[in-house]
Design a protein around this nucleic acid. Structure first.
Lengths: 236, 236
DNA sequence: TAATGCGTTTAACCTAACCTTAACAAAAAT
DNA sequence: ATTTTTGTTAAGGTTAGGTTAAACGCATTA
């Protein structure tokens, strides 16, 4: 059987190093697309689907962090690994906040990177693919397009959603009529579960309720201490 | 808010470093169990469920790799992070082969570890396995949904149940027509068995009886000094 | 460099939900 | 008859959540 190779987006400004790494990964059965800065990286990311992104941090024309943020807005799940010469703690933390999956300090052994990539892809394979690519939802009389971040009611003008509004409503929709645990939203969207992120989430719930009010058959219920439930009353 | 903290198994032979790390993680809302070698680590692992394991590599009485393999045999999914002083490539590779999720070289910044842990748990949050707990019960003409915490009588509006009401009714339902010992409910739900918790439970029994009153075929009987019995009279 | 706009967080205030405790009554056991 | 256990209701205190508005941070524009 011929398995399709995994696709890697490699963004690295040092041309020598980039080529060497690309060749090494290609030899190990990956399809590698090389971009030489953040700008180019984002263009290439938009044009194709990648299984994993490997980003250099320090680059001209958009650094790795900025690129990571943009990638995360487009795709919540694609694994991101940072490469960096710096060992600055702040940078590492910044990287994780930007949604990194892993971090590798230069110089590193290419074989180690390879193992990391394999480990990450393996993890991803075992986790649910189901929800990772679903972007369109029907919620009562609404249409949610989570990729383009808008919510449309019947034929009215679509409401633009902010990233957080969008992700939260999407999570609720993925669990329609079922419990969407607080904790899940906090870890997946806010990347931290504490008092403040929790209150922030409540603010967003209020915003969503406001949007959804025009359709009486749709509502967001609270399950005290557990989370929320997006219910769609099916007309009897 | 009563979110249950994530549990970390930390296996580290250096007592000073171990304690410091444990305290740091505890301060950040993790429940940390510290073991001081591989042997002890495995014993503790078997006795409880952990959300993540952090293992030192070089330890007396069973090293980190061996421990990781044993843990993997018991649990395929629990994330494992290695800590090591060595930068040996072979060790890193060995670690990934043993099923590591991540790798951190000493000395490392504890804040970095914290971010790594959060990143890993966040990844895991998406693949939350369906809880094998039983959540739905039919009690006479009632439907109890214990996950969404409501009790529905025929086609009427569901009654929302509080966590305690819900857990108690669920326990009774699990023992339908049979004795549900006081002590069981007190230890499982109240986590303490004393005069006050016992009286509190009686209050909840009264509340449940009120809810269940609309269906004559269902009632909660007391077995003096023993516990309660949820009986459903099968129509003759 | 300041002003503006946008998304998000934090603060503030209020209500609802929840749990415990107390009080008293009734039933069961001793 | 007295003690212990249970039934029930109501009061009190604590925490979670609903909501609005102000503050903040960041990027873009003037």
């Amino acid at each position: 059987m011929e398995t399709v190779n995994k696709k890697i987006l490699l963004v690295e400004d040092d041309p020598n190093f980039g080529i060497v790494l690309k060749d090494y990964l290609s030899m190990n059965d990956f399809d590698v697309v090389l971009a030489k800065n953040g700008m180019e990286g984002f263009e290439k990311f938009k044009k194709d689907n990648y299984d994993i992104c490997i980003l250099d941090v320090m680059m001209p024309y958009k650094d790795g962090f900025t690129l990571a943020k943009e990638i995360r807005e487009k795709n919540e799940h694609v694994p991101i690994v940072f490469l960096t010469a710096k060992t600055m703690k702040e940078d590492v933390l910044k990287g994780y906040k930007a949604g990194a999956d892993d971090y590798l300090n230069k110089p590193f052994d290419s074989e180690v990177l390879l193992m990391k990539i394999k480990a990450i892809l393996q993890r991803k394979a075992s986790s649910t693919l189901a929800d990772s690519r679903k972007f369109e939802f029907t919620i009562g009389q609404f249409q949610l397009n989570s990729k383009l971040r808008f919510l449309k009611f019947k034929d009215e003008e679509p409401i633009k959603l902010s990233p957080k509004e969008n992700e939260l409503l999407r999570l609720l929709a993925l669990h329609e009529n079922d419990l969407m645990p607080r904790e899940l939203a906090l870890t997946k969207i806010w990347r931290d579960d504490n008092y403040f992120t929790s209150r922030s989430m409540d603010v967003y719930i209020a915003k969503l309720r406001k949007y959804l009010k025009v359709d009486e058959s749709v509502e967001i219920l609270n399950i005290h201490g557990e989370g929320f439930r997006l219910v769609v009353k099916t007309e009897e």
